[in-house]
Simulated assay, not measured.
Amino acid sequence: MALTIAESTTVPIPPKSPVPSLTHLHHHSTITTEFDPLRFEAAASLQLQPNVNKEPSTHLIASPYNHPAHLLDISGLERQDRLFSLALSYLKPIRNDYATAPYTESFNWTEVFGLVKAFSETEEHNWTAGSYYVVIFRSILLPDIDNDRLYALDAHSHREAIASGGLLKYWFGAKNENRRNLATCIWRSRNDARLGGKGPWHAQARAAAAVMYEEIKFTTLRLDIHDGVKGWELSDWKDDA
């Protein structure tokens, strides 16, 4: 899938100054397990609210799955990766046609990168330019598929991916009236994505694609966050990047 102009344009970051908890989170059990609030209302961000309860945690809800085996342990991340993963807990779509709309126009990216900047300032950290590996899945589901099987394949594949330690965010939407959907992963690196996708459930998911999808397209992008979080840019991934 070719990138649109909007998807390769550098966007300036507006200032923002929240005061969240950036190290100790509200325990995931205090947050809903329902998919829709996690996908469409960024419910995971409630873990960062001030006045942490008596059982603070370092395990972040980093997908629509709020269960222990699906959580990201931020204590094992480098500072910039931790701050970015926390900002990604606020990620949510801002238009209903995200399944077909340009990727950069479908989510609240301006807010997310504004938070990366604000979180860095809160920790008095000078953000240095870095890149991440982004995967986009656009699909058309076949009618009358086995939804329980689809859920199992996705959930178990995510458990494999999160166990590798390099998956900072996984998001998927709800199919529209034409059975189209969007899912996306944000990894620390291309190598992390390779390692995270090697498990047996990923192999089963790939094998089941022919009986689950009328069409599925994968796009891989390089996400660059500039020095001081003064801008960000998405571009086509090149294997030598």
Rank of each mutant, 00 (worst) to 15 (best):
L150S: 10
I216T: 08
S164G: 08
R39T: 12
G199D: 02
G114T: 05
H59C: 10
G228D: 08
I186H: 14
H24N: 03
N53C: 09
G166C: 07
G197D: 04
N66S: 02
R39H: 03
L46M: 12
F119M: 01
V211C: 14
D240V: 03
Y65R: 05
V134Q: 05
K175G: 10
P93G: 10
L22F: 08
V19A: 14
A174S: 11
L150Q: 07
F119D: 00
F35V: 01
G197M: 10
R82N: 02
D192Y: 03
Q47E: 03
A42S: 05
H27V: 01
I186W: 12
N53V: 11
N191I: 13
T58P: 01
R194K: 13
E78S: 11
P143F: 01
L153Y: 00
L77C: 07
N51I: 04
F113S: 03
A87S: 14
V211T: 10
V211Q: 11
F172P: 00
R159P: 02
A155H: 11
D36A: 09
L38G: 09
N126K: 10
S29I: 02
E177Q: 12
I162E: 00
L71C: 12
S57T: 01
I13Q: 01
P102V: 06
L38F: 11
P20G: 05
Y103T: 01
A193Q: 14
A208K: 07
W127N: 06
L115W: 01
L83D: 05
D144Y: 08
M212L: 15
T122M: 15
K169A: 10
H26K: 07
K230F: 04
S106T: 06
L168M: 11
V19Y: 05
I162P: 01
T9H: 10
